[in-house]
Simulated assay, not measured.
Amino acid sequence: MPSVFVIDDDAAVRDSLIALFRGEGMTARGFESGADFLARMPDDRMACVVTDLRMPGIDGTELIGRVMALRGPAWPVVVVTGHADVPVAVRLMKAGVVDFIEKPFDPTLLVETVAACLRRLVDDNAVHRSRALTVARLNRLTPRETQVFDGLVQGLSNKEIAQDLRISPRTVEVFRAKIMVKTEAASLSALVRMGLLARPEPGPEA
């Protein structure tokens, strides 16, 4: 599970947030300022950053900009602040901040917000890994096998594929068997799902 990084110059608030997240089974670490966080930048591939806005030195707004530039969506940011400023909140939300929560905050709301961030990271990572594995398997196919695969994914029959490629239906069956082995697909439906996952159809134009 991805970590939670808590950045707040108020030690009492920082410690309470860490205790709150750890109490929910999350891995949480604290940093006393934006500068402290950047100086000891963790190397986690995925994490949720929970930060205050008004801090000495590098404030929250600057920190958020740097985090987004360095890690992007892999490190979603949740702002928890006692100094709510609507224009700033709107700007940060448009820039990609997941949520903007005012102090005093509802612990349940904060936990749910962060937990949702972590779930999305895990789900997105699972999809990414599945797509990468599928692409790797499809790359095992020869050019001719790829042509047969494309025909199968399009829903064409062996006879139709044979006509398109100017080969015999029996040859298509041979290629199809090889494709099933190379892609490790258990069924034709699994093969079609692999095709859709590796080559998602574009959405409708706006």
Rank of each mutant, 00 (worst) to 15 (best):
A89P: 06
G34A: 15
E201A: 05
R170I: 14
I167Y: 00
S168L: 03
E184K: 08
A74D: 15
I58D: 15
A206Y: 14
A186P: 12
A132N: 07
R40Y: 00
R129P: 05
N139H: 13
V86C: 01
V192M: 09
F37L: 11
K94F: 00
M41A: 11
L165P: 10
K103H: 03
M55I: 04
V4P: 03
V148F: 14
L141Q: 04
E112M: 08
H83Q: 05
L165R: 00
G203C: 00
V174N: 01
T61L: 02
T81L: 02
L188G: 11
F5W: 06
S189L: 15
K94R: 06
A177I: 12
G151K: 09
K159C: 13
A115Q: 07
L196E: 15
R29L: 10
V111Y: 04
G23E: 03
M194L: 11
M93R: 02
P104Q: 11
Q163C: 09
P107Q: 02
V98N: 13
T27H: 13
M93N: 06
F37I: 10
V79L: 05
D124P: 00
D15Y: 08
S189T: 15
V6P: 08
R144H: 10
P104L: 12
A136F: 00
L38H: 00
V174W: 03
A198Q: 03
D150Q: 13
L138I: 02
G23V: 11
R45T: 13
G25Q: 04
A186M: 11
V114M: 02
L63P: 10
Q154H: 11
E24M: 10
T51I: 10
V4T: 04
M46S: 15
V172K: 08
S189F: 11
E201V: 09
R137F: 04
A69F: 08
L53K: 14
H128T: 15
A185L: 12
P200L: 10
T142C: 11
P76A: 09
V78K: 06
V122N: 14
K182F: 06
G34D: 14
A12I: 04
V153T: 01
G57M: 04
F175I: 14
T134I: 07
E145L: 01
G23F: 04
A136H: 06
V127Y: 03
V153Q: 01
G34S: 15
M68D: 14
G151F: 12
V192N: 03
L20H: 05
E112R: 12
G23Q: 08
A69V: 04
V6H: 04
V114W: 00
G72N: 02
F100M: 05
M180G: 07
M180C: 11
S16I: 10
A116M: 13
E173Q: 01
